[in-house]
């Protein structure tokens, strides 16, 4: 197994720009994830999931209407 380079001491004067290998090590997980993320496709949504999402959307629209009614009631 390849030996991981030791991190420079925190607070040391050495600039990270001069230690690209260490930056690669520090951010390896992040770059791998970014590369994976770019390939991520939309999830397949079955009928049940779509129905749930639409139901919740109708719920929000209905509730916003109720809030409007409540505000009107309080003003009168």
């Amino acid at each position: 197994m390849k030996k991981q380079p030791s991190p420079p001491a925190p607070g040391s004067d050495s600039s990270l720009g001069e230690q690209p290998e260490w930056i690669e090590t520090a951010l390896a997980e992040h770059w791998q994830t970014r590369a994976w993320l770019e390939k991520l496709e939309p999830m397949p949504m079955n009928l049940g999931l779509k129905s749930l999402m639409w139901m919740l959307r109708v719920y929000v629209l209905f509730m916003i209407t109720v809030v409007g009614i409540n505000v009107a009631q309080m003003w009168h």
């Binding site: 990270l16 720009g17 690209p20 930056i23 520090a26 951010l27 770059w31």
Partner: peptide, 28 residues
């Protein structure tokens, strides 16, 4: 990461202020 225009390149690596800051935080 990867969406910011690079300031310089060194040894084939993208160097930006954001990456530099992120790497410093991860090092700590």
């Amino acid at each position: 990461l990867g969406r910011i225009q690079p300031d310089t390149t060194q040894s084939g690596m993208v160097q930006t202020k954001e990456i530099d800051a992120r790497a410093r935080d991860r090092r700590e």
